[in-house]
């Protein structure tokens, strides 16, 4: 009835079953488009409106359906999730149903009492978007005015979350403005007990939103390449979008992942089960295998690389061909591109 073997990763076994069965194991839910900040690299652009936002009851019913489908991970994001007044209620409902819950927030709108609440209900991961320990660079990334005190407030929130025992992560979008300050950022977080393994440095890739100009230069990448250590790709060469994961936006539109532009259905008028099982678009994604990526077949870093269909399409015009920028961002290849 109960099987326990020390150090056995049963979750990985279950994930393998999910991959084989195309079960929806992981879902990201953007609960709102509303946001107090205005990041220049935001994939949502500057359209922080709340038109037709999914209601708490719709989310609750979605969560119950996800539980039946075998979903384990729920990631909440936005917009800024705490711009939504009932967000704490949404998280509590998710935890009551037994999901593993992670949240990405900019930390600007949450209070210490919100953090206490996340700890009380057992949220597994709280990740703060945090782009620099230099206030003016921090403000520049979030589009904040000079006199803003949100930097101090966020630092207080991060330190408090860490102090009370929450699992805290940091997500840093690396641009040409902050890449040379990564060391300071790592030192600061190390000092408060957040090691570099808890910090995701996400290089800004070129795309369709005129963000290419903000990418670090080739020289900056060379100079800072030691911070982008090669990680083993536990999920394999192809990403899980549409295979075992999907994204749902605040209007109820379902996407293979957050970065796809075309929805495959909407949960307000179709059950997620039906969308997941019958979408023609998802079936096409699931038919893709490594062999389609002919440019990558002989690449020496294929085992640690995870090219993104959407970035490929935006940058090279072909979903099977990573752009030069992407290959450059796989830092061990710098110099070959």
């Amino acid at each position: 009835m109960i099987i326990i073997e020390k150090d056995m990763n049963y979750l990985d076994s279950l994930k393998s079953i999910a991959i084989k069965n195309r079960s929806l194991f992981q879902v990201e839910i953007d609960v709102t488009k509303k946001c107090n900040a205005n990041c220049f690299f935001c994939y949502q652009g500057d359209t922080h409106i709340d038109k037709d936002e999914i209601t708490f009851e719709e989310i609750k019913s979605l969560l119950k359906e996800l539980k039946k489908l075998g979903t384990y991970y729920i990631g909440y994001s936005g917009g800024e999730p705490y711009a939504r007044k009932d967000f704490a209620k949404i998280v509590e409902c998710s935890k009551d149903l037994g999901f593993r819950v992670s949240i990405i927030t900019n930390g600007h709108l949450m209070t210490l009492s919100d953090i206490d609440n996340l700890y009380r209900i057992g949220v597994e991961r709280l990740t703060f978007s945090f782009h620099s320990t230099k206030r003016h660079i921090y403000n520049k990334h979030f589009g904040l005015k000079k006199g803003s005190n949100l930097y101090e407030k966020t630092v207080e929130n991060i330190e408090y979350a860490k102090k009370i025992g929450l699992s805290v992560g940091i997500a840093t979008t690396v641009t040409k403005y902050n890449i040379d300050d990564i060391n300071d950022l790592l030192i600061y977080f190390e000092r408060i007990g957040i090691g570099k393994e808890q910090i995701n440095l996400n290089l800004l890739l070129e795309g369709n939103q005129n963000i290419g100009n903000y990418r670090p230069t080739k020289e900056q990448l060379y100079r800072n390449s030691k911070y982008f250590v090669e990680k083993e790709n536990r999920n394999g060469f192809l990403c899980s979008a549409g295979i075992i994961s999907c994204s749902i936006d605040s209007q109820g539109d379902v996407y293979p992942c957050t970065f796809f532009n075309t929805p495959v259905g909407n949960i307000k008028n179709t059950s997620l089960k039906e969308i997941w099982e019958t979408s023609h678009y998802l079936q096409i994604l699931r038919s893709i295998d490594d062999s389609k990526f002919s440019k990558c077949s002989d690449c020496e870093v294929k085992s640690s690389c995870n090219p993104c269909f959407v970035s490929n399409l935006n940058e090279s015009g072909n979903i099977f061909i990573p752009s030069k920028s992407f290959c450059l961002s796989q830092v061990h290849k710098i110099g070959e591109v």
Binding site: K67, G70, Y72, F99, G122, E124
Partner: peptide
């Protein structure tokens, strides 16, 4: 307990 997360796939 609130620190327990779980899922069921194929009766496992």
């Amino acid at each position: 307990r609130n620190n327990i997360s779980f899922t069921t796939i194929e009766e496992n």
